[in-house]
């Protein structure tokens, strides 16, 4: 036995050690990511941090939406409705009712999102594919018209201002930028972490498996006792709640709730972000939100034809990266792993 083969034997981890390796890798990677994000405000410009507020909000929305799209196979073109709902709740509570506790506002958004999601979902999830998409689109456009036309209630195209809320009952002073890059940034990060854990548990639960079974073959699923309509409706309500929560955060970040938030192109953006990141993996949509927000910001600053560039990108994405950016990451990771095994 020569030296090289001896070292290769010594260096090869036992199968058990590799198992521990893999089991620890994900939690450690997530902790490292959270740590990096928590430290970021000390290194980064306020502008970047405020963009990250949007990334957190959209990540929350997409984690919920992907339970409906990626795991249940129902593609909605109307979920901007729930984002707008959350933002308007934040606006009405802070500007009109004088209730500034963010926790109360979030609770109200959860209740409203669940109720509206339940009533719209009850009608929409009877359909699938393009019919489901059209139903959600119709409801989204109806809500947008309501926001736009009912001036007395919604402020019409002017919208309603979202005043700065109290976090955990505290008014932490400082200017708007200080608030958004400090306390509110951490608030959003913690909220994202909690809701990501909840979504992770949902997709790994019995409900999550039944949802995937329905996505794959609903007739067979029904014969195995899966209540197709019920689980789809639950998925719809979960996605509505997540989007409503995201809407509150977006409203606070922007400082304004206006009808534009509920326009159907916003629903299209949600789908774009999901496809960009990759709907097939849990972490795909948040990655899509991150890339989309920064890319759109960069393109809007560089060219007035930014929509054209984004559109072209979407086409390229569908052709060359059907599994999204997360698919690309997975490909590279598996190639590296193979190289390491060979070496």
């Amino acid at each position: 036995m020569n030296d090289a083969s001896v070292t290769s034997v010594l260096r090869r981890p036992s199968p058990k050690a590799r198992l521990v390796d893999q089991a620890l890798f994900m939690p450690l990677a997530i902790l490292a990511l959270l740590g990096a994000l928590a430290a970021l405000p000390h290194f980064s410009s306020p502008y970047t941090i405020i963009l990250l507020n949007s990334v957190f909000a959209y990540s929350i929305a997409l984690l919920g939406l992907n339970i409906l799209f990626g795991y249940s196979g129902l593609l909605s073109f109307g979920h901007a409705l729930f984002i707008a709902l959350g933002a308007y709740i934040a606006a009405v509570f802070t500007s009109k009712l004088g209730i500034k506790y963010l926790e109360v506002i979030l609770l109200a958004a959860i209740v409203a999102g669940a109720l509206v999601g339940l009533s719209i979902g009850a009608l929409c999830v009877r359909y699938t594919k393009i019919f489901f998409g059209m139903m959600t689109l119709a409801f989204g456009m109806t809500f947008h018209s309501f926001l736009f036309k009912f001036y007395n209630i919604t402020g019409g195209d002017q919208g309603i201002r979202v005043a700065r809320p109290l976090l955990l009952g505290q008014d932490l002073g400082g200017g708007k930028t200080g608030f958004l890059t400090g306390p509110f940034y951490y608030y959003g990060l913690v909220l994202l972490a909690i809701l990501a854990i909840a979504a992770w548990r949902i997709v790994r639960s019995p409900l999550g498996l039944h949802l995937r079974a329905v996505r794959e073959n609903k007739e067979k699923a029904a014969y195995l006792g899966v209540e197709v309509y019920r689980v789809r409706l639950i998925a719809f309500v979960i996605s509505a709640i997540y989007c409503s929560i995201a809407g509150v955060l977006i409203g606070v970040t922007v400082g304004l709730a206006d009808p534009e938030l509920g326009y159907w192109t916003q629903s299209g953006n949600l789908v774009f972000m999901t496809v960009l990141g990759g709907s097939g993996a849990f972490a795909g949509p948040p990655l899509g939100a991150l890339v989309f927000v920064f890319l759109q910001d960069f393109l809007m600053a560089s060219t007035q034809y930014w929509r054209f560039v984004l559109g072209a990108l979407l086409v390229l994405l569908v052709i060359f990266l059907p599994r999204g950016l997360i698919g690309l990451v997975e490909n590279i990771a598996s190639r590296l792993r193979r190289q390491r095994h060979v070496a």
Partner: peptide
């Protein structure tokens, strides 16, 4: 009739979940 993207274990679990009434949302399967 199968669920193409589900494993054998997952497919059989779909039925067991229904049979045992474990339709919970957060419990880990």
């Amino acid at each position: 009739q199968v669920f193409p993207a589900l494993t054998v274990r997952e497919t059989l679990s779909v039925a067991s979940i229904s049979r045992l009434g474990r339709r919970r949302m957060f419990s880990r399967l």
